[in-house]
Computed example of a mutant assay.
Amino acid sequence: MSIRVSHTHGEHIAVAAADGTEILRYVYRPDPEAFESRKPYAHPVRTLAGRTVTGYRPNDHRWHKGLQLTASHLSGQNFWGGNSYVHGRGYLPLPERIGSMRHDGFPAFTVEDDRLAFTEELTWVENGGAEWAREARGLTVHSVDEEAGAWALDWSIRLTNIRTEPLVFGSPTTAGRELAGYTGLQWRGPRDFTGGTVFGPDIDGGAGADAGKLMGTQGAWLAFTTEHDEVDGHSTLVFAHAPENLDERTAIHESHWFVRSEPIPSVAFSWAFHEEFTLPPGETFGYRYRVVFADGAWDRDRVAAHLARLPW
């Protein structure tokens, strides 16, 4: 299935399916609110049927913006946005901790009939203006399959520490709050995903609060399905790790799922859920992720079969 790509320079990149449905908008224009941690994000994201499957600036967490790469606790700075967790004091508005990610350019940008692939260069900047890290980010839209009712987005990161000191990656859980290990690539769903059903290859999380059964667990993939408001239909999102992410010989740190269905729908590929990890000066780490956006309420067998047809 062919796609159409448009680029509004300095603003965003948009991808539309053959029928004109915009399925992805990647926004790299800096947000006006520094407290929300200025950084690129993907929103709106839609299924091929046009169902919106990302949330943007919900009233409970204004800094949640579609699909975005974050670091909630990084050497005392907050690249997630919003209130910062401080052990013994809870969440506090500490604007002096809020960092940002500066868009520096697109060194590679390729559009084919059914595939978009680009590389983005970014600099991670702490609140005082010091440059802490260089990132090479890759996004690829592919496998746009009208028959399956699904398409895939691959998101990769290679991050290099450009400080003279180590970068220490953590999360609210490593700072003392239980079951709040959010950091890394994060998805925020719209409100009709609240109470949705979550499951993995070997675990049935169930709907609503039962999704917490997968909190802090590990697995090759996780699926989140819901029934939409206003329209008669379901959507399923599948979050999948590249094989090397789960290999202790190649990953800088083991990954765990951060997942909630209630009170808010959110999933993160957490790279520092239970423990911190350190990136020495001059060193680089990388991860690759895949998200499949599908129409319909998929079950475990259908998810597994679809992922098997999408080699890395």
Rank of each mutant, 00 (worst) to 15 (best):
S6R: 03
H7N: 07
H9C: 02
H9P: 02
E11I: 04
A17S: 01
A18G: 02
D19F: 00
E22A: 02
V27I: 10
P30H: 01
F35Y: 11
K39C: 01
Y41I: 00
A42R: 04
P44I: 06
R46P: 00
T47Q: 11
A49K: 12
V53I: 14
G55S: 06
G55C: 05
R57A: 14
W63M: 08
A71V: 00
S72Q: 14
G76C: 12
G76I: 09
Q77A: 07
Q77M: 08
F79S: 03
W80R: 10
G82V: 02
G82H: 00
N83G: 07
G88I: 03
L92C: 04
P93F: 03
P93H: 05
P95E: 09
P95F: 09
P95Y: 06
E96N: 12
G105W: 00
G105S: 03
F106V: 00
E112A: 15
E112D: 14
R115N: 12
V125E: 11
G128D: 07
A133T: 03
A133N: 10
A136T: 15
R137S: 08
H142L: 15
S143Q: 13
V144A: 09
G149C: 09
W151L: 12
L153T: 08
S156K: 08
R158C: 09
R163M: 04
R163N: 07
P172C: 13
P172E: 12
T173N: 15
A180S: 15
G181Y: 04
R188H: 07
T197W: 09
A209N: 10
M215S: 08
G216C: 07
G216D: 07
G219N: 11
E227L: 14
S235T: 13
T236F: 08
F239H: 12
H241N: 15
E244Y: 06
R249Y: 00
A251T: 08
S255C: 06
W257V: 09
F258Y: 15
V267K: 11
F273G: 07
E276H: 13
E276Y: 04
P281S: 13
F285D: 01
F293L: 15
D299F: 03
A304L: 06
A305Q: 08
L310Y: 02
W312H: 11
W312C: 06
